[in-house]
Design a protein around this nucleic acid. Structure first.
Lengths: 211, 211
DNA sequence: GAAAGAATGACACTCAGTATCGTTTGAAGT
DNA sequence: ACTTCAAACGATACTGAGTGTCATTCTTTC
């Protein structure tokens, strides 16, 4: 269930190499974008830093932005995996919550730090924010498809869209708070914030303006 | 409250011209992207079709994608305007719903058709879908800021995020259904679908998997 | 009708992203 | 170890979106 580390001896050498360069590129991206800025860093420089060619970069990532949000992508990927391996029972929102919490808990130890750096970058660079929004929308659609299959519902059922959206929103807000606090408390604190956010959802619908 | 038509005599000539070229570009984009495909149409061709230079295109739109989703952008812009001019009372979700319905109702007569064409394009072109997702995320943030100011709440209040998201989701799902039905019933039918979707939201939270 | 200023067109430039192809390297069987 | 095969890689050339600059042409205003 945990992320594939590049040092994993069980993997064929070829796969380990691919993971290593992928990680090298993502690390270089995080570092260079933070130091020089996203726009000021060209892909050529980035590829050179990771000692691969530009071709190799595009074999590992579909876009410049993707390398910067690796940590975020790892989380959502684990989320989808956790959800797929789950047998649903009871309130669906609760299931999504559990899947998300389990996904976050299962990531490799260094993830916290990378995620923090990623979110800071995203907050500073509009291009990255746009990419993240679009990325999450794609994940949301996969969640909907997965739920629709498990529950034998139409993928256009409004309720699925609402639920997928709510889980994502809860995560997003929790993450922003966590980052504003400098990531204090690490992953545990982040997951606790998520718990609180999910619990607060039902009350949201009743928010009223004073008469 | 209605959209600025290029024929509006009350506007200075210079502004009318700007609106005319903007509309010409958006129309050309919708037509050419539909006929030739988004990628196969270059900006040079598109600009030539509208009889302006590439420079002028980028003064009217920030990106190639933006010209294709003018109709969508008009709606959200009207939504923000309607929301800004509203005094909130009662359930906030209801207010958002009303603002959205009013915005849709107030757009110019040809909007239905352009919106339909836009959504078909978006469904066919991943690049456009990505752009729309990102665009809506920006609108959502403005809604949150507007609500936070009116209700004197923190912009990070989870409830605001949830509500802004729900309104957007209800619209999105309603629109997709409407498009699947070929836009039958015009704007009236679309707004009715929106009503139904908003009403169905509370039940979404209770969706459970069979034990 | 003249001055001021905004919008435009023309042009040059950067760089993300794609396509092609010859070379290297790990995987698998003998 | 030796060969075969396929996957990954590097090098190169190319397209086209998006930016910056500047001279020119319009609209507004006085």
């Amino acid at each position: 269930m945990s992320t594939q580390l590049a040092g994993d001896r069980s993997l064929p050498l070829r796969e380990r190499k691919k993971l290593r360069t992928r990680r090298a590129l993502a690390d270089a991206a995080l570092r260079m974008f933070t130091e020089k800025g996203f726009d000021a860093t060209t892909l050529e420089e980035l590829a050179e830093e990771a000692e691969v060619s530009k071709s190799t970069f595009f074999r590992a990532f579909p876009a410049k932005e993707a390398a910067a949000i690796e940590a975020e992508a790892e989380l959502w990927s684990a989320y989808l995996t956790a959800l797929a391996g789950r047998e649903l029972s009871g309130p669906v929102l609760n299931e999504l919550h559990q899947a998300l919490a389990a996904a976050a808990a299962g990531l490799d130890p260094g993830w916290d730090e990378r995620f923090l750096a990623t979110r800071r970058l995203v907050a500073a660079e509009p291009a990255l924010l746009a990419y993240v929004e679009q990325y999450r929308a794609g994940i949301k659609n996969q969640v909907i498809a997965s739920l629709a299959a498990k529950l034998r519902l139409d993928a256009e059922d409004l309720r699925l869209h609402v639920l997928a959206e709510l889980a994502s929103t809860a995560w997003s807000v929790s993450g922003r708070h966590w980052v504003r606090n400098g990531g204090r408390g690490g992953r545990g604190a982040l997951i606790e914030r998520l718990d609180g956010a999910v619990r607060a959802i039902p009350a949201s619908l009743d928010l009223s303006a004073p008469a």
